[in-house]
Amino acid sequence: MTALFRTLYEGAFNIFEKPMRMLQYSLGAHRMAWVFLLPNLLIFGLFTYLPILLNIWYSTTGGDRILLGDRDWVGGDNFATLFDCGSYLDPNSCRRDLFWRAVHNTGWFVVLQVGFMILLSLIAALILNRTIPLKGFFRAVFFYPVLLSPVVVALIWKWILQRNGVLNAGMDWAGMGTVNWLLDPSWAFFWIVFVSIWANMGFYVLILLAGLQAIPGDVYEAAEMDGTPAWRRLVRITLPLLTPTLLVVMVLSLIRAVQAFDEIYVLTGGGPGSATTLLIQYIYDVGFATRPRQFGLAAAASLVMAGVLLVLTLLQLAATRKRAEEG
């Protein structure tokens, strides 16, 4: 039986041997790498690079038609419209004020969400790295929200935060009165940051936990023998040795924060007003939700965002490379 399988197995692979030999003979060995890369290059080309090129093309056209042949060439007009501002710090002075509100909201969201998420993830990882009861359970608790679909996360929190939701019912029961959490711009913004941290924190806790466990135990033993206090061990040993991991976590969370959309869209719809409208939602609204659809403007806005993401990705690459060199 085993011999039969081996024969079939070898036979299946030998089918390719002759054609590949002929190919290598005709192309030369140094070009064979391209033959193996070709399937992946085709897939990436078709589903990644071609859409990018199309997006660039769309950003230079106007009108509400979908087919590029039916669209008018407008050059850089869409970018000029987006950047037509009295002051970039005051969205009201901009022609496309909603774009700049989205830029401002995204900026604040990234700063607050990433800042607090790294801090809380670090604290959680430090606690979970210690010998505590039910450690496995708590690790699962932190990671569980990561497994949930963003829409499910948003619906759960909507159920908690709405006018007659669980939170208000609890506050009412405690005699504290109720708050329209999602109808007040400041509270709505607070909650999108909070929910986003709750939903994504587990992933970063896991990475930081791996980073913490990679720190050699003998360093801590030596510090303990020298009588170094716990706080000093954290500042002088843990954090410096965890820095490369923290850097990766920061860049990854920055990229994900800039791309935030689904949870927020379901939770607040970008409202009240434009208080929780981030860049991706602006692009979606302009390109798909409003009529007539302004594909050119949406494409231009998405390229602006792609520029920001490119910078963040290059930072991540630099950080990873530095870590590899140090490691």
Binding site: L182, T268, G271, A275
Partner: peptide, 14 residues
């Protein structure tokens, strides 16, 4: 009812 108009953003129907 504030929840209807203020409860969403953009042109979303509610």
């Amino acid at each position: 009812a504030r929840d209807v108009w203020a409860g969403a953003g953009g042109g979303t129907y509610q």
